[in-house]
Amino acid sequence: MESFWARFALRLWVVLILLFLFLPLALIPLYAFNSSNIESWPLAGLTTKWFTTTWNDPDVQTGFALSLRAGLTATALALVLGSCAAFAIHRMTFFGRDVVSLLFVLPLALPGIVTGLALNSFFHFTGISLSIWTIVVGHTTFCIVIVYNNVLARLRRTQGSLIEAAMDLGANAFQTFRDVTLPLIGTAIVSGAMLAFALSFDEVIVTTFTAGAQNTLPMWIFGAIRLGQKLPEVNVVVSFVILVTIIPVVIAARLTGGSGIARTTTAR
């Protein structure tokens, strides 16, 4: 009997935690269908009119386009730089390797407001005007870390003798990379990219300091809430952002066997 109650209590606790984590998230998509523009229970009625309104809002359109472009560019850059960094750290031993490794990961640990402020000062100092490119630079700093960590973890789990086996069988450096290395770390690279994109797509703090006149989608949300305008549209956009960020994270978790890919980074 004891064990029954212990199990029951444990299950109840798990359910409560899940509700605590996800109930607020579930509320937003629900409000997106609310026919009244005032958020109150019970819902006044169900409608899809806000979706049409949001879709036709030019501010949302430009915000979405900017978020998408910045996210994809930052991800692409992070993919190349992060993978290269992971290879270098894995393959080579040199003086100060651990320090360099730490420096790669540091941008993730730094508070976004520090990264943002530092970049903002730097752009002012060098006279670079804020644009999509400054957003991309800001996002790339933390996207690199995601790709780097993912690829490095996979490389460390991969048998070193596989590379030697390929060379031993006559493969040159390029063939070894194409036939052995890439297939083995491919899913790690893709999942790193997915997570990096998800992270970039909903980033606010660094973006605030590095964006010019244009708003990204999260910044548009931020502004709309502060001004208390277009709240029904905000619910639609937020629902969309949740979807866009969850899908890559789920895919990433699938690709890496669902292990160790906690999106701890969203805390920033």
Partner: peptide, 20 residues
């Protein structure tokens, strides 16, 4: 001569079979 140009082949201790 680098390994890929040598007429040797190795049976590795951990076999090193390509898992994919």
């Amino acid at each position: 001569t680098p390994p890929h140009l040598r007429q040797t082949n190795t049976v590795f201790q951990d076999y090193a079979l390509f898992p994919h």
